[in-house]
Amino acid sequence: MTAVTAETAAASTYQARFDAAVAADERIEPRDWMPDDYRATLIRQMAQHAHSEIIGMQPEANWITRAPSLRRKAILMAKVQDEAGHGLYLYSATETLGASRDELLDKLHSGRQKYSSIFNYPTLTWADVGAIGWLVDGAAITNQVPLCRCSYGPYARAMVRVCKEESFHQRQGYELLLALSQGTQAQHEMAQDAVNRWWWPSLMMFGPPDDASAHSAQSMAWKIKRHSNDELRQRFVDICVPQAEALGLTLPDPDLRWNEERGHHDFGAIDWEEFRQVLKGNGPCNEQRITQRRRAHEEGAWVREAAAAYAAKSASGGSGAPHESAASEGSGTKSGEAQVEATA
C-alpha cells in the first residue's frame, strides 16, 4: 500500500466512524475527527448565533434608560445582560472548533459573517420590548430547543444553558404586552402597533422556505438541524394564535385561519423580498447596529490593551505594581485553587 492510499483508507475509516456516531445520535466532541464541511457549517451557524445575541442587545438596550417602572427596568437590564452572556457561551462553544473570538468579531465587524436580520428592525416604542420578548424570543426558542440535541456537543450544551435561562425572556415579554393590552387605550394601541410591526419579521426568522433553503438538507443529515424551516415556522404560528387571543391583540394577517384538514393554521404569504433586502443590508437599522458594535469595539481597544499590558508586566515581575498572584491576593482567592465565593 502506498502512503497516499493508506491516508485515504484512514480518512474513510474516520468518515465511517463519524457517520456511525451521528447515525447513533452520539455527540461529536471537539477533538473528534469531523468532515471539513461539517466544521465550516458549524462555525458559520454558531458564529451567526453568537453575533445575533450580541447585536440583539442593542434594540432592547435602547429602552433601558426609559423603562417606565423600576421593576421593568430591572427585568430589562437582566435580560440584556443575559444576551451578552449567551453570546459569550456561544463564542466559547465556537472556539472549540478552532475559530478565535477575535477572528469571529472581526468577521462580524467587516460584514463577512451575519447576524439574525430581525435585529435590523427598530424598537420605536416601549411595547416593542414586549413584542421582542413574546415574538422574537418565542421564535428563537422554537428554533433553539431542537438545537439542544444538535450533534455537536459544545453547541448542544451551550443551547441547554441558553434555553434554560431564556425561559424568562419570553414570559416577561408576554406579561409586558398583557399589561399594556389591558391598560389605557393609548397603551393598548401601543401594544397592537408593536405586534403589527414584529409579526412578519418574526416569521422570517425561521429562514427561507424549505425548497429555497441552501443549507438545510445537509444540516439535517448531520443532525445539526432537527426540523425544517417551514416545520418550525408552522409550529410557531400554531403556538402564537391562541396566545394572541389571550392577550386581546390581533395578528396582522387577514389570511390567518385554522385549517381543520391539516390540523394547522394557514397563514398569508411572507414578503421574501423584504427579507432579502434586509439581509442584503437595506433594513432600517443595519448600518446603525454594525456601526455601534464596531465603535464599542474600537473605543474599547485601549482598555483591552491596558489590561493585556498589565498582565504582561505582572507576569514578568516588571515595572509598576508588584505582581499579585491569584494565590496571594486577598479578595476571596486561596492558594492552589483560585477560588471565588459567589455573593450574587
Binding site: L88, S92, A307, A308, T333, A338
Partner: peptide, 20 residues
C-alpha cells in the same frame, strides 16, 4: 465553558459574573 481575560484574577471575576 470558557472565557477571555487578561489574567487569572480577572478570569476569576469574569467567570463569577458569567457562569454564576
Amino acid at each position: 465553558g470558557s472565557l477571555h481575560a487578561p489574567d487569572a484574577e480577572m478570569a476569576l471575576r469574569n467567570a463569577r459574573d458569567l457562569y454564576t
